[in-house]
Design a protein around this nucleic acid. Sequence first.
DNA 1: ATGTCATCATAGATTGGCTCTATCGGAGGG
DNA 2: CCCTCCGATAGAGCCAATCTATGATGACAT
Lengths: 295, 295
Amino acid sequence: MNLRDLRYLLAVLEHGHFGRAAEACGVSQPTLSVQLRKLEAELGVALLERGARGVSATAACRRLLPHVQAAVAEADAIQAEARSLRDPLSGPFRLGIIPTLAPYLLPRVLAGLRARLPNLEIEPWEDLTDSLLERLRAHDLEACVIATEPDQPDLLSRQLFAEPFLAALPPAHPLADCATVAESELARDILVLAEGHCLRDQALAVCRTAASQPMRAMSLVTLMHLVAAGYGTTLIPALAAAAAREMGLVVRPLALGALRTLRLVWRVRSPHRAAAEAVAESIIALVDREFATSR
Amino acid sequence: MNLRDLRYLLAVLEHGHFGRAAEACGVSQPTLSVQLRKLEAELGVALLERGARGVSATAACRRLLPHVQAAVAEADAIQAEARSLRDPLSGPFRLGIIPTLAPYLLPRVLAGLRARLPNLEIEPWEDLTDSLLERLRAHDLEACVIATEPDQPDLLSRQLFAEPFLAALPPAHPLADCATVAESELARDILVLAEGHCLRDQALAVCRTAASQPMRAMSLVTLMHLVAAGYGTTLIPALAAAAAREMGLVVRPLALGALRTLRLVWRVRSPHRAAAEAVAESIIALVDREFATSR
DNA sequence: ATGTCATCATAGATTGGCTCTATCGGAGGG
DNA sequence: CCCTCCGATAGAGCCAATCTATGATGACAT
């Protein structure tokens, strides 16, 4: 069976006339005669009642008609949808982002991304680095933003910006009065995120210490609440500084100015690389220059 | 655009592999390569991401997929409907049956069904009620026999026969000497099937008790073996009585005579409704009247 | 009645595209 | 670094859709 023949059938039913239907289809009248006879033979059912004065549908044809129309309509829908997807910078784009970045980066860039890439439907997906890379390789994400450098050869990445780490302290903390905080001082009572967060490893590396606290904070917000409640100090990425200050924390630069580098990662042969690169460029352009050293 | 190419696309997506998809379609691998490249060119959209280890759908493809599936499904519906218009009582007929009924009902009726409906190619499919109904609605089955009443408005059903429940006991059991077994007595050490079997729920309801045993019996045969080995008693449907006796069990009627009602279920607008009704009539006529109260 | 018109069916030639076999090229894995 | 797997490409062959030209049939009018 062929979509073309189904269209022929619909045309003949619509016009009630082989000749005019053929004209509407842009083919000759014998073509319709032959093809529709073949269709009837293939289905084993008479579809058309050929009268001397025009053509009408048989009862069987009326029974099939809804499916015929639906099939043709779906085919048309495929073409219509494809037309709107033809632009490489359009269509759904599932973007993974690590949890220590997502809530602070997305509000700053989402509106701008929509403005710059109006046909790209960005669907953010928040998860830990390993899960993101797994999903990326399983084609469940088109790209993701992470703070480490993926060394898999099937992935490409583009540096977005560098984000300094800052010390977050309770106001009453002795270090709160210093203009900058020494990493070794911060290490004394630092609280870090649960395993799996790259920020955990990076914070411990910056402070050259190991985790000791018994708690298991799954989000930066939790961690900052703990600090605000006086349970210790922590190290936050710069984009989270505003949120930390709003929670009453004191935020100070680190003495040695450690930072993390955010990258956009995608599959090396992804058909969405053009969109990924456009997303990367847009994010670079949109992120506040206050702290960010782009590229 | 061509329905055939859409089927090729679905096959490649399903198998994730051009070679195997080609085999499934009955064509050569280059055919799929060429045709799908053409389809992509025609739509102006990359549909497949060809990796070294298999093929997957692009985001655009995922967007188009529902329409592709719908178009192919409608084409199949046309053929199915045409076939049923040609001869409603012919063609493949996938018949789902619950596991507590299939091995006892099928031997009694299959030959008779073939004799009464020689052009209907009945393909039995055994599964739990929920899976059967799911498959029925997904057009993977034409009808199914279950022991509960489906309340979905897109399904129709026809009562087949009522099947009494019977107590199955080890010969040495105290209740084995009674002419009838009281449900409350049976409840004391009743063994029931695993979750998902409607017979499990019905047995527990009949005995007004809750399951307590640690074992997880996936078939009536297993259950009867356990009873034969003296682990307890159980409740079986009447058609399984002969099998139970052959395993050395004692079978007794229940005091209150509980029973289950078997029904044939099909989709309300199925092109196979005539065949389904003929199957129902035939089963009713064929089932042994010994215990069955046919409508 | 019979010619005429309208309409669909048929015949034979042509063309285009689908499919095949054979082979290439590239990417991973050992 | 070689080997294997898998998709892409090339070129030939064949089938089917289409065209033009013509036939067949029934309605209608004179």
